[in-house]
């Protein structure tokens, strides 16, 4: 029985946590949500592909106001993972423009966000500076 579950369906846990995209078999467009068809070519066949866990921070913002339960300030960013764009929080870095830099190399990391009443822990992902 599993004591932890991924926060979203496209996160795979285990020894080598990574993201999985749905790739259109016809045009190669990649998506993270449940698909009916492809937004690029209307194709309906998809295959699961692993997304590289290393990437480059293409843009970010430091959010100072958020819904209850969300710690602020936090860094939101878009990471270019070898040509696949991924939206995530940038973690394990001080949330200030002095420390978060456009173009900086980052890598995927996972962390628990809480347990439900049955003790099952939900694991989320983010990207952290890659040394």
């Amino acid at each position: 029985m599993s004591d932890s579950i991924p926060f979203v369906n496209y996160l795979v846990l285990g020894d080598d946590p990574h993201l999985v995209a749905q790739e259109c078999k016809a045009c190669g467009a990649r998506f993270f949500d449940r698909r009916n068809a492809c937004a690029g070519c209307s194709g309906t066949e998809f295959q699961s592909v692993d997304v590289p866990t290393q990437g480059e921070l293409r843009t970010f913002t430091i959010v100072a106001f958020a819904a209850p339960g969300i710690e602020v300030p936090f860094v939101s960013g878009i990471v270019d993972c070898g040509g696949t764009s991924v939206r995530a929080n940038i973690v394990n870095v001080e949330p200030s423009p002095e420390h978060v830099k456009l173009g900086m190399p980052v890598k995927l990391t996972t962390f628990p966000i809480g347990k439900d009443e049955e003790g099952v822990e939900a694991i989320n992902f983010g990207f952290e500076p890659a040394a």
Binding site: Y10, R34, T61, I70
Partner: peptide
């Protein structure tokens, strides 16, 4: 208890947890 919803199958709101 965690329950998946939406097209990402998220167990809680993604806003603030996966970007903004």
């Amino acid at each position: 208890s965690w329950e998946r919803s939406g097209r990402y199958g998220a167990v809680a709101g993604v806003d603030g947890r996966i970007g903004t």
